[in-house]
């Protein structure tokens, strides 16, 4: 029983973090049809920003807004300098460019940050949870809280704020927003900035309690089955799919893998689930169907 609580709890926390990375992907995909393969490096960059500010000895209430601001500027700059020039091209072409951006960022991170992992520890109150013999260490609990709060904040922002409504409008149709005098390009820049902030928060959640290294961006790959499962255009879908994938990974690690006698089964289990779901619902669990009136 305690074993089960441990597995489910870890799965949910892991899943929340995956979900947050997936949300970052969905934001960009919704607004421009581009799949941002550099999302993992966006996570790393965010965690690096956090590490840099923290190692300067700044207090936490400066470090947190500071690194989020840096991430926003970073995402906005990438859009402005690279993506903006490609607007009007096939989204697939831009998607391929993001693979290039990813490689360049890995190189830059290696060059400036170095190859040594650096320990990241959020100086927060101890929230270590013990349920029976199940143990959730404080940093793990905090990572779940950070991811959950970030998701709630983002959902509220996207649903109710004027900028959120404008982001949804330009995602619906860029031409229609332009003819109504909405500066769709500026909104796309802001969307990239916000996506980078979300990625930075998930990067922090990945690094907290362990370490940040230049090749941490590999977690971006973990978000791939999540977005495909949840549907590329749905933020709630990304969150729910994140939790599902997290649970699938931990349960297959603790139960199904040993039962099947396979080591490393948790790495492929999300893809098996994904395959089954896509066979039944090609648009993903919560994918947006085009509104068609009959």
């Amino acid at each position: 029983m305690d074993y089960l609580i441990q597995v489910i709890g870890s799965g949910i926390i892991q899943g929340l973090v995956y979900g947050l990375i997936a949300v970052s992907l969905v934001l960009i995909y919704k607004s421009s049809g581009v799949f941002n393969f550099a999302v993992g490096e966006f996570c790393t960059a965010g965690a690096v920003f956090f590490f840099i500010l923290q190692s300067l000895g700044l207090p936490l209430w400066v470090v947190i807004p500071g690194f989020l601001l840096m991430a926003a500027v970073f995402g906005g700059l990438i859009e402005k300098l690279i993506i903006d020039r490609l607007i009007g091209r096939d989204p697939m072409a831009i998607t391929l460019v993001t693979i290039g951006i990813s490689s360049i960022l890995v190189g830059l991170l290696l060059f400036f940050f170095g190859a040594n992992p650096e320990i990241v520890e959020l100086p927060l109150p101890d929230l270590t949870l013990e349920i029976g013999s199940a143990l959730f260490i404080s940093s793990q609990v905090w990572n779940g809280i950070i991811a959950a709060l970030a998701m709630i904040a983002l959902l509220l922002f996207y649903k109710f704020s004027t900028m959120g409504i404008l982001m949804r409008a330009t995602a619906d149709s860029q031409v229609k927003s332009i003819v109504l005098g909405i500066n769709a390009r500026r909104i796309l820049t802001i969307t990239w900035g916000i996506s980078a902030v979300v990625a930075a928060l998930s990067g922090l959640a990945v690094a907290n309690g362990s370490a940040v290294s230049y090749d941490m961006g590999i977690v971006g790959l973990a978000a791939l089955p999540v977005v495909l499962l949840g549907g590329l255009e749905s933020i709630p879908g990304a969150i729910i799919a994140g939790i599902i994938i997290g649970l699938v990974e931990t349960t297959s690690n603790f139960y199904f893998g040993p039962w099947l006698g396979l080591t490393g089964f948790q790495a492929i289990s999300p893809y098996i689930l994904l395959l089954v779901v896509l066979l039944i619902r090609p648009e993903g669990l919560f994918g947006q169907e085009l509104i068609e009136r009959v």
Binding site: T162, R168, Q288, I291
Partner: peptide
């Protein structure tokens, strides 16, 4: 007003009007 109608189908009426007035 484009032929396919200058409406954002995923937004509700209020949000549509708000958007249009945003500039």
């Amino acid at each position: 007003i484009v032929e396919e109608r200058t409406v954002f189908p995923q937004l509700n009426v209020m949000e549509n009007l708000k958007c249009a007035a945003s500039s």
